[in-house]
Amino acid sequence: MSRSATATLSALGVGAAGELTADPAGVLPVRGELADPLPRGGLRRGSTVSVRGSTSLLLALLAEATAAGCWAAIAGLPRCGALAAAELGVAVHRLALVPRPGRDQSQVGRTVAALLDGFDLVAVGSPVSPSAARKLSARARHRRSVLLPLTDWPGADLALHAESGSWTGLGRGHGLLRERELVVRATGRGTAARPRRTTLLLPARDGGVAAHVAEPGHVAEPGHVAEPGHGLTRRPPTRGPARSSAPSRAPAPKPLRRNARLAVHRA
């Protein structure tokens, strides 16, 4: 699209593709089941959400937003598995990796600040000083980006803690890793003050995220409302409007092929 055409559309109140589809309410969408631990059913623009305990959880959080046209950057995570990201649904051509964002904390801070200027979602794996962390959070608020630190972060609006549960699919000498239970605890401030706890399948059988079907023996936490028929998961109220803009969505990127059935292994 030419610059002038973009300008005209902005004048009419129509944003560029990413903004049009992704956040009518200033909330970036996440894949359905991940919406449960998040207070507004998505990643609110300008907020800081720390993600601890699971790289898969971080990648899954990026998936829906990048597929809808947002741009994501991951800084300071040199061992990030880009293939897993693609399998979880991340549009990897809108993903930038900065494996080594700087030699020292101040340079990391500069790099992350530069990334926040342009990317909608910025994950940070390198530690920064508490004062720099507050500055970066303020910058994310100002730029309306989402900051996703993977370390302890003072002033995070929401903290997600993942605890890896049990895997299924693997036997003693046979099978394949297939799916895993992941318990996500969310604590935060404001609307997120009430702790939430959700059990997901991440990765699920199809490579993505799925709701965890309640099994006998699992007990909901006190205060957690379990809807009948939905196991331990709930549908957040904001999810409806966030999805309602789907008809005007920009051409979705070609989904990456999953090759679940390609490998033929020895028995």
Partner: peptide, 13 residues
């Protein structure tokens, strides 16, 4: 690519 492992892939490589 025979011998390729199916999804899921490791998130940390």
């Amino acid at each position: 690519w025979p011998g390729r492992l199916p999804a899921p892939s490791p998130a940390t490589v």
